[in-house]
Design a protein around this nucleic acid. Structure first.
Lengths: 138, 138
DNA sequence: GTATTTGCAAAAAGTTTGCAGGGAA
DNA sequence: TTCCCTGCAAACTTTTTGCAAATAC
């Protein structure tokens, strides 16, 4: 299902700002802050308000069309998220971000922690930081 | 090694604000924002500035005496971190936070992702969200 | 046509910086 | 005594809110 359909099905409209932001993030390959998104769209001649960027990202995050990537040294950034894969690995040098799948190993760990702590685990956040192939060869 | 010693060894001083913040976090059991820490210390009659809270937390985080906990619905909070254990599980209802150890399972996952992506993994962030035993029984 | 969505302005919230005085070692 | 650290004030950045106009469907 396309992200446009997901918007529609949930009663939201496919508007210019949403299209532009999804297009930008799809091509970005690295997490962008609301400010960066706003600046890049302005530079493209797309005249939208920063406020709309915030509101759009909130919505897209809620629908899990984008994910938040935390980087200790910068503000949280947003990346495109393909359904079902919720983990990212980020290059500490060029900040390129890649999705990876991690369901099995994590399920095991979660079960162990549930047994140890008696918590009922509902969600998790996993991100890896490192050096991407490109930056390694420099 | 005590956290006081860690400060000293690294050339930092054991000052009132640092002591109060470490004491507060040690007893808190849940992630606290800089603002919350400041407010609670003021309430205790300890008269320090918010700025010092920020600076102290930065330092403590750098020395890994405290860790940052991200919660999608709130601002990032700080918790006490015992050396070597860097993962937390947070209750989505009462926000209690607990450390858990997870080295083995994660090492395995990291190796797999390194093989898949050709990234060199240097660090990671793992947090679980769920319902604590206490909140389950309500 | 109608309800959602946007943009603007303004305010609120959160964080950082510079500098003089105070405190730990 | 020495240098690190704190507190204050102010600046700065980021995020949120309210409301009228615009637009998707």
């Amino acid at each position: 299902m396309s992200w446009q359909e997901i918007l529609s099905i949930n009663g939201y409209r496919v508007t210019q700002p949403r299209v532009r932001i999804m297009e930008l993030l799809s091509g970005a390959g690295l997490p962008l802050t609301p400010q960066q998104i706003h600046a890049q769209l302005l530079a493209q001649g797309c005249d939208l308000g920063l406020v709309s960027v915030y509101r759009t990202l909130d919505l897209l995050a809620q629908l899990e069309l984008v994910a938040i990537v935390y980087d200790p040294e910068r503000n949280p950034g947003y990346v495109i998220s393909s359904a079902g894969h919720h983990h990212h690995i980020v290059c500490q040098q060029c900040h390129q971000a890649l999705e990876f799948s991690g369901s099995d190993d994590i399920d095991e760990l979660i079960q162990r922690v549930e047994a140890e702590t008696a918590f009922q685990v509902r969600d998790h956040l996993l991100q890896l930081y490192g050096i991407c192939p490109g930056c390694q060869s420099k």
